[in-house]
Amino acid sequence: MFKALLVEKTDSGTSASVQELDESRLPEGDVTVAVEHSTLNYKDGLCIGPGGGLVRTYPHVPGIDFAGTVEASDDARFAPGDKVILTGWGVGERHWGGYAQKARVSADWLVPLPEGMTTRQAMALGTAGFTAMMAIRALEAQGLTQGELPVLVTGASGGVGSVAVALLSRAGHKVAAVTGRPEQEGYLRSLGATEIVAREELAEVTRKPLEHERWAAAVDNVGGAMLARLLGQVVAGGSVAAIGLAGGAEVPMKVTPFLLRGINLLGINSVYVPVDERRAIWARLAADMDMALLEEISVSATLADLPRLGAEILKGQVRGRVVVDVNG
């Protein structure tokens, strides 16, 4: 038997509760993992609550991330006792996920825990940190180097934004952090932001296809009108890594920034990343992230806390990172 957050659906809607389940209920897979930690993402909030079209069948165990120890394996790549990480691959959406003390998954979806990193640190990063590093690597591949102009991060106090600000700052970049909550200024500066930009400055649609060049590059978690606006403010030849759509999927803009300034719009999808690239991203996170700072921006939670936290993250009320101790 093991504990899990089980989401059930009836005609009146969904409900989530911590239950004791028999191991026979685990889905198919060739590796069984004793989960130690998971984390909380926007997708998790949807899967705990309304589903958002992500969950196909109920009852369901959410949790798109987890880290733990291999308990049993039918695959030669992993042996009992190995420490592993899982992010992506539809786990926690189509496949039972990490909000449980046990998980059974395909070996193809797992990567080894980097040397020197704990499972708690791995989940303090989780998909958010993984995605932030993907965005930074994509910007670097397009030529981003340290310079006079700052790199803009929208949705900066959220999970991806927080880690992106910290990583960019530690790499020597000036960082401009966008937030709609003035009370978060101290928090964002503690991460390394050198400039705070009020969300209202970028939320308004402008008729000007090009504006003053303000940003060397950008990591955008918002989409919508804000993405349209910042594309017209990026330096010629610069790039924007698009991660989220909290501000909407429609981008009201002209193609002028691409044609007259050669701006690159880079789409970031962390779900189906090849295993070799996953290993490289995790190795870079282990080397580049300030783990003491990561601990400072992380809060602890248990399985029982998740229904409340899932609702809060959908309302934009969760700051930084949440680490879920599934055995707590």
Score class of each variant (00 low, 15 high):
Arg104Leu: 06
Glu211Cys: 01
Ala304Ser: 14
Val163Thr: 13
Val175Leu: 10
Gly63Lys: 04
Arg137Gly: 12
Ala236Lys: 15
Gly328Leu: 05
Pro27Phe: 07
Glu20Ala: 13
Ala67Tyr: 06
Pro307Tyr: 09
Gly186Phe: 02
Gly248Tyr: 08
Gly161Trp: 04
Glu296Ile: 03
Arg321Ser: 06
Ser38Cys: 02
Arg214Trp: 09
Ala100Lys: 02
Val35Asn: 00
Gly13Asp: 00
Lys3His: 13
Thr131Tyr: 10
Lys102Tyr: 11
Trp89Lys: 10
Tyr42Leu: 02
Lys174Trp: 08
Gly237Gln: 14
Asp22Lys: 14
Asp22His: 15
Asn41Val: 07
Met123Ile: 10
Leu259Gly: 12
Phe78Lys: 11
Gly68Leu: 10
Val165Gln: 05
Val318Cys: 01
Thr119His: 15
Glu140His: 09
Leu40Ala: 13
Ile85Ala: 08
Asp276Ile: 04
Ser24Gln: 14
Gly158Arg: 06
Glu185Asn: 09
Met133Ile: 12
Leu191Thr: 09
Glu36Met: 09
Val197Gln: 03
Val35Pro: 00
Ile263Met: 10
Val178Glu: 01
Glu296Phe: 03
Leu6Met: 10
Gly320Ser: 07
Phe2Ile: 11
Glu277Leu: 11
Ala193Asn: 00
Ala292Asn: 12
Thr87Glu: 01
Gly49Gln: 12
Glu148Leu: 11
Ala67Gln: 04
Glu183Lys: 11
Ala76Ile: 13
Ala218Gln: 08
Leu303His: 07
Gly143Arg: 03
Ala242His: 14
Thr154Leu: 09
Met289Trp: 05
Glu71Cys: 07
Thr154Glu: 03
Met289Pro: 02
Leu46Tyr: 02
Glu250Gln: 09
Ile64Trp: 02
Asp82Glu: 12
Thr10Leu: 00
